[in-house]
Design a protein around this nucleic acid. Structure first.
Lengths: 131, 131, 131, 131
DNA sequence: GTGGTCTAGACCACA
DNA sequence: GTGGTCTAGACCACG
């Protein structure tokens, strides 16, 4: 599992970590049931604070992407248990996307172009092996 | 100019204010050349500190959405001077959207559905000059 | 006398006005002894406040570039009376130029290039008719 | 890092601070990658408010001279990432220098003399690695 | 302990 | 009256 952090970024490290793990799941590089490194080992691997990894894991657990077993350690949830498209999620999505769309409109980036960007991201992230 | 803020939100007030103003421009409720309320009056209108408004204005000025005119006060930039779709902007956009798409993939929200959400936001915000 | 002001600029209008008049003198478009418009007419010509023009004139007078006669109005000083290169002026110059040179060094603009820019400005402003 | 401020000057403190830091970089007293004191410690060291220091740092960050690193704090950018000579910078430079040259012409300070002043500043600021 | 945010009150330059 | 600057004190997120 490759984690790339930008320590200069204004995005908190724990958020970047969450994003990377979620993208890992989305892309298939992290499979359901697969186990993640322990808080300690991941922290030392990428050279950040224990608390930071812990915070990311805790939030991912809260959102339902991972489970923490006393014995098996940290694992990605099974496909059936993966978080769904809830009302709450859709609301958050709209709230996130609204300012993005507004700025696009101001700058003259039209709906087709934005859709195209979204499409490229889907293809970019999505698992490519179709078998 | 209606401004709606959520003082409890984790999103900084000055960011919400920027978003609202940008959406105002995108929607046509704020027209190019139109003048915005003074820092002081807007602050007292919406019940926040003038420095918070000032920060929002300053950032909007830096991004090129508004100008501070010595006589007319704060004005929305002319259409020709509106910020463009720069490389830098596209990079920022991709960076913002990437985690959104990743989470969508995990939750099983497919590309068509996300595109549909974008489309609705475009229609929602866009100026509705129907007459 | 053409005056070009940028009302959006962060540079105060009275300063821009002073700069323009000094450049006018430097370029020969305003000759020693020539009279400048009255505060009132200049203000209405360029559409700014009386006080602003007044401030510019007052400061120019203090610096010795113009004289205000009760009868002749405002005139550019004679060549012999033009402000000289004083110690005080050199100190001000160094103080102004120091940060400019420092930033140039940081950005990798070398001495020759900066000198070239200065040279171009001299040629640009200087009176061109040599007869 | 020595900082000398003139609290009586008409030049804003945050500007003086920016200038001093840029000169520090230009002179080599501040090396790329080196970390700057925290907002709080610098503020208390030089006896000004932390918000004033913060403003200077924020602007320097925006201009690309420093970065805020999540672990190392505030650092001078690496040499490769140092701001370049952009069109925008050259425009700003011309705008800054134009009135200076105009006044020089009026006062009879010729191009050679001004060039000489620039040269002295370059030598004065430039890193003196003689050993 | 760090930077980021917000509030509050004050002074000044500008127009 | 406007924006710009500075000070001061407080809370929070982050690491």
């Amino acid at each position: 599992m490759m984690i790339e952090l930008d320590l200069q970024s204004e995005i908190p490290i724990y958020t970047q970590l969450m994003d990377q793990i979620i993208e890992g799941i989305a892309s298939g590089r992290l499979e359901p049931g697969e186990s993640l490194p322990s808080v300690r080992s991941l922290a030392s691997d990428i050279g950040i604070n224990l608390h930071t990894v812990n915070k990311a894991y805790t939030l991912l657990k809260q959102e339902g992407f991972i489970q923490v077993h006393r014995k098996k350690g940290v694992i990605v949830v099974q496909k059936e248990e993966m978080p769904q498209v809830t009302e709450h999620y859709l609301a958050k999505l709209g709230q996130q996307l609204r300012p993005v769309v507004a700025e696009s409109l101001c700058r003259g980036l039209n709906q087709e172009q934005l859709t195209e960007i979204i499409a490229r991201l889907y293809n970019d992230i999505q698992p490519q092996d179709k078998e």
